[in-house]
């Protein structure tokens, strides 16, 4: 039976996915701008952020409206509660993409410190996590969401490795400290994006199954 509520929930779902698409694109472009030393593309990422912020506010408004008007229960309630949180995580992913783009702008004024090997790998894993967390939401597939959570450990490992490597660069040659710090900042932001993707995946599991898998429950 089609309910009036379903139309509103569908609108919320569409907006959330549009926002997801936007931040994924921002991450893509941030990586490309780094690898290709493309300052214009980095600026484009920064310019995309207000649109993400706008959707974030619209989405919250839509969710509160559904709560007030329908007092949803069960899976509907869990969906709206999850979206309010996912919305926040996605907005933060957008912010991270902006931080990365700003670091790229700073780096583009100096010669490259080193060939990037681990960073593209980190980008790839993290983008996959964001994509799959949203995909698991659309498909209502908790197994896919769990898989996202599992990948967070890889990210943490890779981040530590990058950290150590950049540290040795800085110890050997103080002249590279600024560039190394910018690269560290990029890695740090990617590591945070992975955390947001993990949060999203956990919220998907709660939405679909009603189980809280955060913290000790993992």
């Amino acid at each position: 039976m089609e309910r009036t509520l379903d139309r509103d929930l569908d609108e919320i779902r569409q907006s959330l996915l549009r926002m997801g698409g936007l931040v994924e694109a921002m991450l893509d472009q941030a990586e490309k701008s780094l690898m290709e030393r493309d300052a214009d593309l980095a600026k484009h990422v920064i310019k995309s952020d207000p649109e993400v912020d706008r959707i974030e506010m619209d989405l919250d408004e839509m969710c509160y409206s559904v709560l007030a008007r329908y007092q949803p229960a069960a899976v509907d309630l869990r969906f709206v509660a999850a979206v309010i949180k996912i919305n926040n995580d996605l907005e933060r992913v957008g912010d991270s993409a902006v931080n990365i783009a700003q670091a790229v702008l700073a780096l583009s004024e100096e010669p490259p410190l080193k060939p990037y090997i681990d960073l593209p790998r980190l980008f790839e894993i993290v983008r996959g996590m964001v994509r799959d967390s949203l995909d698991s939401l659309v498909r209502q597939k908790p197994s896919q969401a769990l898989d996202v959570c599992d990948r967070d450990d890889q990210v943490d490992g890779l981040y530590k490795q990058i950290f150590r490597e950049l540290l040795t660069y800085m110890i050997e040659d103080p002249k590279v400290v600024t560039r190394a710090l910018h690269l560290l900042l990029i890695s740090r932001n990617l590591e945070r994006v992975a955390d947001h993707a993990t949060n999203i995946a956990e919220d998907v599991i709660y939405y679909v199954e009603g189980r809280d898998v955060r913290h000790s429950a993992k």
């Binding site: 769990l146 599992d150 599991i205 009603g210 993992k218």
Partner: peptide, 8 residues
């Protein structure tokens, strides 16, 4: 992580 997945 050990979580059993079963339909709700």
């Amino acid at each position: 992580m050990e979580i059993k997945i079963s339909p709700v």
